[in-house]
Amino acid sequence: MKHALILVEHDGVNPHSALRRIVSAARLLADRLTLLVAGSQAQAVAEQAACIAGVSEVWLFDAPHLSQPLAEDLSPLLAHAVRERQASALLAAASPFGKATLPRAAALLDCAMLSDVVEIQAPDVFVRPVHAGAALATLRNPEPVKILSARAAAFPPAADQPAAPINIQPAPPAANRSAWVSTTHPDSARPALAEAKVVVAGGQGLGSAEQFHALLDPLADRLNAAIGATRAAVDAGFIGNDHQIGQTGAIVAPEFYFAIGLSGAAQHLAGMRDARVVVTINKDAEAPICRQADYVLEGDLFEIVPALLRALE
């Protein structure tokens, strides 16, 4: 019987919405599944996690020093859980949190790992994008413990089940290597990029921060969309970096992606290639984004975006 562990990402109250999808990925590797929740007073997280179909048990590590879980504290905890459960797989979402933590645990276990897995072909064969998504690599991982960060959007969400048992685990003492100072999450009024069904993304073509917001905010409001941006748009100060999409920003796979006044550089495509329907508005029909789009509206975005908004009313 194979046993997989998942590091649960959460905000202290709710597990991250990606968790259900990571559970589906883990179920391809093991028949028993333990979710690891580390936090301070995180009982509510554990309770919700226990009700995801396929979960065998939840281990809850609850201690004040885990209120802002740091990689230095989580990695020995993960390595301990792998040994204790004789786990053959350890997973987390391929989010900044998962990607900062899993490799640290992998090194403690002296285990090679795979990042950004988008497909599990066999219990030891995995597919992941390389070169900013310009190619998909298939790799065999013969390590005794398969450690992987998985792209949530590539796996279906698991359903509900009656609650699995929650086991309280003794939290290891604080590593005291680094200290959390602060966290900022600007504009949380709109849907989060990672979760939005529709993303409206703007590039350098918007020209200025004022025009970016004057044009894209009403469209995003109308479509209940998250707002994304290219690196060029962020660097020009149109919007904060937490909106950047691409190799160095968020990786999204919404139902609809509106690419407005952006050219579709390889590094941008890396973040939106898996969107279901891509619409682009660009005055240049030769821009690379037009080859990655399903619908192309060629022309001046300053005329087309207001017209689009009217057509949506």
Partner: peptide, 29 residues
Amino acid sequence: RLELLGVAPPPARKPAVKVADARELVALL
């Protein structure tokens, strides 16, 4: 420790549909 079995291009999108105006786009979407 890992063995590269192969690489492939990402799945291609169908050729894009060129749309005349916003109204047509909304109908298609």
